[in-house]
């Protein structure tokens, strides 16, 4: 297997694997966030569990960070190498005649998501790390000790319309990224077209419903608080 990950196809498998992992993570993230719309309590419980359970914090979280980094760094490398494979560009190229906009612009939708991830880290992840591991407060409680802090923190974040706007825009790009990315990941993994036709419909649904759901959550908290 030594040369595998140096080969073009080996890298495709690795890229697809990281993407499949990210899509699974996204589903799990959505499942917890949507609780905030229906039950602040349930959302608090789930957040506290995810934020303090050792396997999530010390196993899944590092894997996630590695997965995201691997995915976008490999995305950049792929894009860079692929650009080098054509030195002189066409004077006239009609890409729209044979492929979707989404498939030709994965690097730009990806960059938009990366920009969002930076904002998202500053918004939620860094304060979490600060509270839990620097200040050492693992209780998950509000400053006055009256119940969990997670729901309060979440709703607080969605007050600023600029931030809500940025989140909505980022999820539109995520949707565009996944419109191509979902089926692409299965094609890269060598899944045969017979099975892919059923996956295709599921992929389109995933690429629309999940980002739309995240948009709904952001808008819901913006207009309800």
């Amino acid at each position: 297997m030594s040369g595998f990950f140096k080969s073009s196809i080996g890298r495709k498998y690795a890229m697809a694997l990281s993407a499949l992992f990210l899509m699974f993570f996204l589903l799990q993230h959505f499942a917890i966030n949507i609780l905030s719309v229906f039950s602040p309590n349930a959302f608090n419980e789930a957040s506290h569990f995810m934020g303090t359970f050792w396997a999530v914090q010390y196993l899944l979280q590092p894997v996630l960070i590695f997965g995201v980094m691997y995915h976008f760094i490999m995305g950049f490398i792929l894009e860079f190498k692929n650009r080098q494979a054509r030195v002189v560009k066409y004077a006239k190229n009609n890409g729209a005649a044979n492929s979707s906009w989404m498939s030709r612009n994965m690097i730009y939708s990806g960059l938009a998501i990366l920009g969002f991830l930076v904002l998202h880290f500053i918004d939620f992840w860094l304060p979490e790390i600060n509270t839990k591991y620097i200040q050492g407060d693992m209780s998950g409680l509000l400053a006055d000790g009256e119940g969990f802090r997670y729901y309060e923190e979440l709703t607080h974040k969605f007050v600023n319309p600029l931030r809500v706007g940025a989140y909505v825009l980022a999820f539109v790009f995520l949707s565009l990224h996944l419109m191509h990315g979902f089926s692409s990941a299965f094609q890269s993994s060598g899944v045969s077209s017979m099975r892919k036709q059923k996956l295709q419909a599921f992929g389109k649904a995933y690429a629309i419903i999940i980002p739309l759901g995240f948009i709904f959550i952001a808008l819901f908290h913006h207009f309800n608080h």
């Binding site: 890298r11 080098q84 044979n98």
Partner: peptide
Amino acid sequence: MVAQMDLEGFGNCTNTGA
């Protein structure tokens, strides 16, 4: 064949379907 393909300097597929 894949090794030779990579050696020739072709790019890597991103499944655009063009």
